[in-house]
């Protein structure tokens, strides 16, 4: 098989660490649930966000003993089912959600932290069972994934329903920082 020089150059560039290999973002809509999923694969890592509309979020937490006030506060905080998966990174990755960024209308902030929510639930006097369910249903605040490892959990941006934003996810492999971005993501209404 023969390769043209520019093809070889492209392949060589693609093999360099830091080059956004397979970084194309995809978007799909599920007519059955009415939700949209945004997904990208970059540096051997898959990042995926699926809208969780307010009604299913309300149902989930109401069913776990949350009072209406708490249910409403969370369900309207722009909730996403989030997946980060190490498919083929050059080693074990680690991340902290505090390092991720949500960019919307010129403002940049990290996703709402699990700790911030837990403080609210404690202040509201939620039962231990409700707090445990909440804590472990969230996307992990920090985690390490060897190749093949992944988690799926809920993540909130704190933006109003219908907001548009970019999510920048960051992780490190062997001390080197990588980024994956999902652009023009929309909070469910």
């Amino acid at each position: 098989m023969k390769f043209r020089p520019f093809v070889l150059l492209t392949m060589a560039l693609a093999s360099l660490s830091g080059f956004p290999v397979n970084a194309a973002q995809t978007q799909s809509h599920d007519p059955e649930t009415g939700t949209t999923t945004w997904q990208t694969r970059v540096h051997g890592v898959t990042l995926l966000l699926t809208q969780i509309p307010p009604d299913p979020a309300r149902a989930f937490y109401f069913n776990r003993g949350f009072p209406l006030q708490a249910v409403e506060r969370y369900a309207t905080a722009c909730v996403f089912m989030t997946v980060l998966r190490n498919d083929a990174a050059p080693g074990e990755l680690s991340f902290r959600l505090d390092d991720w960024r949500v960019q919307s209308e010129g403002r940049t902030q990290p996703p709402t932290s699990v700790e911030a929510w837990m403080e609210q639930w404690q202040a509201l006097g939620l039962t231990e069972a409700a707090q445990i369910a909440f804590r472990w249903a969230q996307f992990p605040p920090e985690q390490e994934y060897a190749v093949g490892e992944w988690n799926q959990g809920m993540l909130t941006t704190g933006l109003p329903p219908g907001s548009r934003f970019d999510l920048i996810a960051r992780w490190t492999v062997a001390g080197k920082t990588f980024e994956g971005t999902l652009e023009n993501v929309v909070c469910a209404r």
Binding site: S28, D30, E32, T33, T35, T37, Q39, T46, L48, T50, I52, P53, D55, P56, A57, R58, A59, F60, F62, N63, L68, V71, M81, V83, R85, A146, V147, G148, E149, W150, Q152, M154
Partner: peptide, 26 residues
């Protein structure tokens, strides 16, 4: 809400393009 609680939030994302289950161990 009680009626909706009969179906979990998983339903809302069931049809999403979820990652395949991994076949290896670390």
């Amino acid at each position: 809400l009680a009626c909706m609680a009969a179906f979990p939030v998983a339903v809302a994302v069931a049809a999403a393009d979820l990652p395949p289950l991994t076949q290896g161990l670390t």
